[in-house]
């Protein structure tokens, strides 16, 4: 469970960093998606933050799984 969580977190963080670094690959498509769906148009404001959120969530998962690992080592 801890290892899976850490791996998921690392992948999320990595994808987030790729998203931050290569916005030109995905940003036009994402902005177009929100522009095409009028009821979601205001959500366009969060598009720049998607890779930031991915990275933060990934780092949080990695830190949490390391904390769980440290706790279980302390308990045993």
């Amino acid at each position: 469970m801890g290892a899976a969580s850490m791996l998921t977190g690392a992948c999320l963080a990595l994808f987030g960093l790729v998203g931050v670094s290569f916005g030109s690959l995905w940003a036009p498509g994402a902005l177009q998606f929100f522009a095409d769906h009028e009821s979601w148009a205001q959500l366009e404001l969060i598009v720049p933050f998607l890779p930031i959120l991915m990275t933060a969530t990934g780092v949080r998962l990695v830190v949490q799984s390391r904390q769980l690992g440290a706790k279980s080592r302390g308990a045993s």
Binding site: G23, S24, A27, P28, L31, L45, P48, F49
Partner: peptide
């Protein structure tokens, strides 16, 4: 977020 996203839009939009 406000300032940084301004430059995100400059680069990608």
């Amino acid at each position: 977020g406000t300032v940084w996203s301004t430059y995100w839009y400059e680069l990608y939009y």
